[in-house]
C-alpha cells in the first residue's frame, strides 16, 4: 500500500525518463544510408541512399491500398498513401537513427538496415 504522494512521484519519474529518452532518440543523427522497406515482415526493397543520384518515386501496393515513396539523394519519405490516418506521410523524411517510418494499416515500415540502429537506445 503506497501513499498517493508516492504514486505521484513514481508517475512523474516515468514521464520524465520517457520524455528524456524520446528526446535523445529523436535527436540522434542518421549514421548510415542503407534503408530497408519491409511489408508484413518481409524485406521487399533495399536502397542505399548514398548511391541515389536522381530523385524518383515508386508505389508499393498491398491488399488494402498503396503507399507512394519518394527517394532523393540521402533521404526517403512516404509522399502519398490511401491509409486512414496518413501518419506515414506526416512522419516526413526518415530523420533519426532509431525510429522507423511506419504505416500501420498497410503493415509497411521503412528502416535503416544495419544493426547499429539500436545504438541510439543503448547510448
Amino acid at each position: 500500500m503506497f501513499k498517493t504522494r508516492t504514486w505521484l512521484i513514481i508517475i512523474t519519474a516515468i514521464i520524465m525518463i520517457s520524455g528524456i529518452l524520446t528526446f535523445t532518440i529523436s535527436s540522434s543523427r542518421l549514421k548510415s544510408q542503407n534503408v530497408q522497406i519491409i511489408q508484413d515482415g518481409k524485406v521487399i526493397e533495399t536502397i542505399d541512399l548514398s548511391k541515389v543520384t536522381r530523385a524518383y518515386t515508386f508505389t508499393i501496393k498491398c491488399e488494402s491500398g498503396y503507399n507512394t515513396i519518394s527517394v532523393e539523394p540521402g533521404r526517403i519519405c512516404v509522399i502519398d498513401a490511401d491509409c486512414r490516418d496518413h501518419i506515414c506521410m506526416q512522419q516526413g523524411w526518415l530523420s533519426d537513427q532509431a525510429t522507423p517510418i511506419v504505416c500501420m494499416p498497410h503493415g509497411l515500415i521503412i528502416q535503416l538496415s544495419d544493426a547499429s540502429q539500436t545504438d541510439a537506445l543503448t547510448q
Partner: peptide, 20 residues
C-alpha cells in the same frame, strides 16, 4: 508483426504519451 526490433524505438514516446 513487422519482425523488426527497430520498433522498440517507439517505446519511450508511447510510454510518455500513454502515461499522460
Amino acid at each position: 508483426i513487422f519482425s523488426s526490433p527497430a520498433m522498440m524505438a517507439y517505446l519511450p514516446v508511447l510510454i510518455f504519451s500513454g502515461t499522460i
